[in-house]
């Protein structure tokens, strides 16, 4: 019980730290692919926050088993939101990478300061 409490906050702390690690990559790195990697880390941190909220103590995955009474289920709603968000995330990431590839073909580099210098 006590350990679960500790973990409850620990999940949120990990969320905060990973979120900020992703943000750091986005704002401080010059390489465009590195920025996109940072963005996907940022996104994963948000997923972790949502999934952390779905947990119910003593619960199980929300799949109803026939003949088992009084089961506690975790909240299905955040799971649905994140399930779709993961697949949408990879599609939009691919869109970003496609733009990076075209930038590389047009400018010969994917470093942000060199692109700005070339303009």
């Amino acid at each position: 019980m006590k350990l679960l409490d500790l973990l409850g906050y620990y999940n949120y702390w990990v969320f905060a730290v990973v979120l900020m690690v992703g943000l750091y990559a986005v704002i401080s790195k010059n390489n465009l692919i590195k920025k996109l990697i940072g963005l996907s880390i940022f996104q994963s941190a948000v997923f972790l926050l949502y999934i952390t909220m779905d947990k119910v103590e003593g619960g199980t995955a929300p799949i109803i088993q026939a003949g088992v009474e009084n089961q506690i289920f975790s909240n299905p709603l955040p799971q649905v939101l994140i399930l779709t968000a993961i697949v949408v995330g990879v599609s939009t990431l691919a869109l970003g990478l496609a733009i990076v590839v075209r930038i590389r073909e047009a400018y010969g580099t994917i470093e942000e300061h060199e692109i700005l210098g070339a303009d």
Binding site: N11, S44, F47, I51, T52, D54, K55, V56, G59, T60, A61, P62, I63, S74, P78, Q79, I82, L83, I86, V87, G89, V90
Partner: peptide, 15 residues
């Protein structure tokens, strides 16, 4: 571990 089996499956396949 957080009871989201569907999401775990998606993350493993996609991510």
């Amino acid at each position: 571990i957080l009871d989201a089996a569907d999401v775990a499956l998606t993350e493993a396949a996609v991510g």
